[in-house]
Amino acid sequence: MHNNDPHVPDPAQDGGVADNGVNADLDALTAKLTALESELAGARETVLRERAEIENQRRRLQRDLDNARRFANEKLLGELLPVYDGIVLGLANESADAKTLREGLDLTLKQLEKVIQGNGLSVIDPLHQPFNPEHHQAISSVTSNEHVPGTVVAVVQKGFVLNDRLLRPALVAVVGDH
């Protein structure tokens, strides 16, 4: 039987044109799928490389941080070695008199003060200054007609500030209220 309707395609006359269209669509979809799979594989590889790089950076940073902690005092200790050497030399000089030892100690103390000031440490020596509870610790109260109440009249132990942060308060005697 023959199809006489001009609008309905006759499968016998078509001869596989419909199959060719489906095959072309299938080939196009297969090619697109292959391209997308390749793109996905490339993206996965990029992500894996970036993860590995981030992990390597994290390890390097951790190693650098560990080294910074281990050697944080290296500069300071290197600067303290001449002070140490001065003390050792002074103690080794058994024939020195008191005046020579005192001069050596004075020079060593000046070296030490230079090192600590160069590293942000400053001395609190509040003699004859008003009492400051943020930097001073009163350990005794004395009476005095020469000084106003609240004045530091004796420093038992000097205090220290490290880069604007109190490291140790000065231990002081303060004039009390009359």
Rank of each mutant, 00 (worst) to 15 (best):
H7M: 08
M1F: 04
A173P: 00
L77N: 07
F131H: 04
A98Q: 12
A92D: 15
A31L: 10
R168H: 01
D85C: 02
A52M: 05
N20F: 09
H7N: 12
H136S: 03
A28V: 06
F160D: 00
R58M: 10
I116A: 03
S95M: 09
K99Q: 12
V152G: 01
G78H: 02
M1N: 06
R69I: 07
L89H: 09
D125K: 01
T143F: 03
L101Y: 07
T108M: 08
L127Q: 05
L65E: 11
L127R: 00
L33G: 05
D164Q: 14
N132Y: 05
G16T: 03
R49E: 12
H2W: 07
Q62F: 07
L91G: 13
A170P: 00
F131E: 04
R58T: 14
L91R: 08
T30Q: 10
I124C: 01
K75A: 14
V161E: 00
S144F: 00
L36H: 06
P9C: 06
F131W: 06
H178D: 13
L33F: 12
Q62D: 14
G90Q: 11
K114C: 00
P11A: 03
L162T: 03
E37T: 13
L48D: 15
H136P: 01
I139S: 05
H2L: 11
D14R: 07
E94G: 15
M1L: 09
G118K: 03
D97C: 06
E37A: 11
R60S: 13
H135P: 00
G15Q: 15
R49V: 02
R58P: 01
T151Q: 02
L127N: 03
L127V: 06
V155P: 01
A92L: 13
G15W: 07
E74I: 10
V47N: 06
P126T: 03
L61D: 15
N4C: 05
G150F: 04
G159R: 00
Q57C: 04
E79M: 09
V22Q: 07
G159L: 00
